[in-house]
Design a protein around this nucleic acid. Structure first.
Lengths: 269, 269
DNA sequence: CACCGTCCTGCCTGATCGTACCGAATTCAT
DNA sequence: ATGAATTCGGTACGATCAGGCAGGACGGTG
């Protein structure tokens, strides 16, 4: 009974599972586990690698995709394009004001781009945004609590809604999922939309940035018409038709002069 | 800790991750962490630098993209000692429970040390702690809002107090400023003390870790007597008198066996 | 039942790789 | 400027690797 012989294919399938689960496999360990020689394991790994299912390395194998999804792929992936957008966004924030900052990599980039001693009161429902500015001497930080949604990385629930009921920010740094001159500002989450809708009405001035791929697209839940925005930061390659339409709606457009050259646009994997 | 030896490529991957996360890596620390000689680490860093993935500097390496700036400056100063404490602390958290996590570098280290798939509900008033676990699939995250105090990096005010009024965590991962067998648990902030006092009474089990330099010291505001702690994680070089007194008070002491050392690999046959 | 080809397996061998140790050169800090 | 820490190159040793080889298991065929 304990002499369960694994079929070669069965073995390879299990190896792949382990690869996904543990983020790596070691030839020696596998050999001991399956009670076969390391040679057989090596052959398995070689075949799997040849089939494009894993990356063969000295001593074992690693999954092809860093799908290990381990600790920190999140912060690192703020591409240079968004850094540029964020810098321009940051320059629109007058010193001394109270700014609500949505979650989102562009806004995160904006926080990073803030001058070192820019005096501001930052209000946010995103722990990542908060962590970014928490250490700054010049910034007063108000955290909005609640259950943090993993997809967005921010709190949108009823408690968060209640927390912002009395809030009247000078500026709302809106994070958009999609933006269209006709469809307006739309997002993917229901609670998210409600939360943002409230903030739009309560803020003196709403500004946002949108990468070109978000322009002219739509999402299920509407937040506000495009004209609710006072300022809009765009990239240089934004579709001209959209830019013109948005401008007609009364938005002040801030376009980046140039798209950075040596930048990988988007990694589909 | 773990007798699992890392594959070379795996090591380099992890080094890159830490590079992104902490904004720097130190050769000596890496050598201790991976239990390999500094030579191997240096070779890794050289290869990564040759591949254009990092910038080699005297004593370690820096990321090429200054992607992570201010956020990580603070985080980077989590020395190896605290990492070890944090790992032990993390091992005390049973899966599935609701854990309130205070601010503090030791608790941050504990969050990092959590197994990838550990199912937990984390409640915290510290954006840094929250940001660390926000991306984890297996973790439910509840953020306590309020005005974030810069000194501590957490929210302790009236709003935060109100937010935890109904909270009854299974475990409270207390962050201490000072701990003494007689004086008990003390901290430097008034609001902080009040906040923690409430949590101590409302939690089923209170555990904490203390570096040796905190033992036998006191701070202005008392939180609770030492016996309020169920478990206490200490370092190997903790003063024996204190350890004994705390043990008499009924605390379960978890002492690190040894401060990490670069162990020689070759063993006489 | 004998025969044969295929597949899988384990063992062997020379080659390659990763590692620790050593000494010399370099860099940093006092 | 001196001393300590760090780095680089070289070297030796063990682990791992790829390919070749032989034996056993399995299935088909006569």
């Amino acid at each position: 009974m304990q002499e369960v012989e694994y079929l070669p294919e069965e073995r390879q399938r299990i190896i792949l599972e382990r690869l996904q689960r543990d983020g790596r496999v070691v030839a020696l360990e596998l050999a001991q586990h399956f009670r076969v020689s390391e040679d057989s394991i090596r052959r398995d790994l070689r075949e799997l690698a040849a089939a494009g299912l894993c990356l063969r390395v000295y001593g074992g194998a690693l999954p092809l995709s860093p799908a290990s999804a381990s600790l920190t792929e999140r912060l690192s992936v703020v591409p240079a394009r968004k850094q540029a957008l964020g810098a321009r966004l940051a320059s629109l924030l007058p010193a001394g004001q109270v700014v609500f900052v949505d979650a989102g990599s562009t806004n995160l980039a904006a926080m990073r781009a803030l001058p070192e001693n820019q005096a501001l009161t930052i209000v946010t429902n995103s722990p990542l945004i908060a962590a970014e500015v928490a250490a700054r001497e010049s910034i007063e930080l108000l955290m909005i609590g609640g259950l943090v949604e993993r997809r967005t990385g921010a709190a949108f629930g009823t408690r968060a809604l209640r927390d912002i009921a009395d809030l009247r920010p000078d500026v709302y740094l809106l994070g958009v999922c999609a933006l269209d001159a006709v469809a307006g500002i739309t997002v993917f989450g229901f609670d998210e939309a409600e939360f943002k809708r409230l903030l739009v009405t309560q803020s003196r001035r709403v500004i946002t940035a949108a990468t070109s791929d978000k322009l002219g697209t739509g999402a299920p839940f509407a937040v506000a018409p495009a004209r609710a925005l006072a300022d809009l930061v765009l990239e240089a390659d934004a579709p001209a038709a959209q830019v013109e339409a948005l401008q007609r709606a009364g938005l002040r457009i801030h376009a980046d002069a140039e798209v950075p050259v040596n930048v990988p646009m988007s990694t589909p994997t």
